[in-house]
Amino acid sequence: MNANDQALLAARPDFAAIARWVSPGARVLDLGCGDGALLRYLWEARQAPGYGVEIDDAEVVACVRNDVNVLQMNLEDGLSVFRDGSFDYVLLSETLQTIHGTEQLMREMLRVGREVIVSFPNFGHWQARLQLLLGRMPVSEELPYAWYETPNVHLCTLTDFEDFCRRLGTRIEERLVLHAGQAVSLLPNLFGSLAVYRCTRA
């Protein structure tokens, strides 16, 4: 692993978990792919070819510069350009909380991918709970925005997300909860700040 990759994994600890779950050579679709860092990493680490979807003009240019396949589209419009089951994995890395049509997108992801990997900041982390208890909206490393400028519209806790999966009839195959890059096994909904789930159609 080179220095770039190490810096990347330090900044985005969910990437390592995602890469571990993606089998070599698998076809991946990364939704809200940013500058394409995850896709590039998956290509280098797992030889997994993929496409990214991104809406932001500057990020799309960054993807093209990173030599990553990118499609500029709005996730809120659905995934109609992709056929049923055309990807082994559909990834949604720290993007779930910014989506308005959350349920529709989850259904679309499960339609397009054999498996779905979702990561999101855990609103149930004790620091968030404490800040709310003290009367303020939580601001932390995972939730770095003040309430008036946050792109996050649908924050949830681990329990909320698991209820949501049950409602959608989605099977949770694997879960990894992290804090500061380390796996959390004790009271994960309280001590984990970042959650990564691997789901399939039930």
Binding site: L71, Q72, R83
Partner: peptide, 20 residues
């Protein structure tokens, strides 16, 4: 253009698409 994108995806081609 999205029709072309879809057809290229079906053919698994290397592809980037910007919609400005």
């Amino acid at each position: 253009s999205r029709e072309i994108v879809r057809a290229l995806l079906d053919n698994r081609r290397i592809l980037s698409y910007v919609e400005l």
